[in-house]
Design a protein around this nucleic acid. Sequence first.
DNA 1: TTCATATCTCAATATCTCTTGAAATGTTGA
DNA 2: TCAACATTTCAAGAGATATTGAGATATGAA
Lengths: 101, 101
Amino acid sequence: MFGALSQETRLKVVRYLVQCGEEGASAGDVGAQVHASSSRASFHLTALERAGVISSERQSRRIIYRANFDNIGGLVSFLLNDCCGNHPEILACCKADIESC
Amino acid sequence: MFGALSQETRLKVVRYLVQCGEEGASAGDVGAQVHASSSRASFHLTALERAGVISSERQSRRIIYRANFDNIGGLVSFLLNDCCGNHPEILACCKADIESC
DNA sequence: TTCATATCTCAATATCTCTTGAAATGTTGA
DNA sequence: TCAACATTTCAAGAGATATTGAGATATGAA
């Protein structure tokens, strides 16, 4: 997942799909949004899906992509717990964000 | 930073340095811990430092590396806020971790 | 000064990743 | 069936990244 997110175009895709929420967006939509050709968009969408950041579902002639919220949350969780052992200095950075929800 | 973390050896380095805390560890120490030759360890430590994940300080003949907690916390914060717009499903994943600190 | 230690730098090679454009696949409606 | 649309697949080339081993640099101690 870190690898999938370490690319400008893919990061834009994720931000857009998170905004779209459950509704998601078609491959063409996403491609236009991030100014990528269809094959380029497809390449990056495939990479994100392989990494588990997003998921896809065919809806008639389009393919709808959605952010995979569970897995993105899991990545944050991995960073906080497994990777950083719930280190207080790191937890402190996002305490405010969490409390406001 | 995502790029820096998207590599097995470097992820191991970060986990180790987070464990070491403020004390940090020397380049040789880190290299041994992750089973990397000196030049390989140096290469990856440099990459992590360039990305802001860790920082270094010379202590006589060794160079001590430490996790950069502010920046790692900043990355989590970026994921939660900027990237994911404080999406509730994603925040929920680490709510428990935060509350326990 | 000289030696041993700790770390980095460099060059060569191998491997992976990104981009492009053309062609293939699958889907719908006339 | 045929045309158009939406998306993917493929091959080629450019560029980035990882690994290795040899050598350079810097530090401390005898």
